[in-house]
């Protein structure tokens, strides 16, 4: 398993495609907390799917003013189809070219397989990582760790 960035580290900035014709940078979210959810691939089985679960929990994340960003090495068109199919209401970022660059910045890239880890980061409004967690790749980590971390953020 990778050594992901730990709490107290400044979250590296990045700019990625969020749709085929739009880009998003982490710094665009400055002033509010962010949740980065790296995951291996779009289209994993439905009922246990991590992004589908987070989609249902968005109102809880929003109570903390936090923006959720899903990130995988899938391309923007793939993300678009996946988000439409699962009716996802949050951005999916394409860490596609050069592949896995952002996952590598966060220590969350699996070299052998060419996908990102199932790694979670909660970033505070000042851009510092306040919590991180790397799940075994086959295990959906759920959202309890994220919610605990958001509750511990200073207002």
């Amino acid at each position: 398993m990778s050594h992901i960035l730990t709490p107290g580290t400044a979250a590296p900035d990045f700019t990625l495609h969020v749709t085929p014709d739009q880009i998003l940078s982490l710094r665009d979210l400055a002033g509010k907390p962010a949740i980065l959810a790296f995951y291996p691939a779009d289209w994993s089985p439905v009922c246990g799917d991590q992004m589908t679960l987070y989609n249902e929990i968005l109102p809880e994340f929003q109570k903390h003013g936090a923006q959720l960003l899903g990130i995988s090495v899938d391309g923007a068109w793939c993300h678009q189809a996946f988000a439409k199919h699962r009716r996802l209401h949050f951005p999916l970022l394409a860490d596609f070219e050069p592949k896995g660059t952002v996952a590598k910045l966060y220590g969350a890239y699996r070299d052998g397989e060419g996908v990102s880890e199932r790694a979670l980061f909660v970033i505070d409004k000042n851009g510092m990582i306040s919590w991180s967690y790397c799940s075994p790749i086959a295990v959906n980590p759920g959202a309890d760790g994220i919610l605990d971390a958001l509750e511990k953020l200073p207002n």
Partner: peptide, 13 residues
């Protein structure tokens, strides 16, 4: 019910 499940680590059904 749903949120109690989330806080208990339910990650799918």
């Amino acid at each position: 019910d749903f949120m109690g499940g989330v806080r208990s680590g339910v990650n799918g059904t």
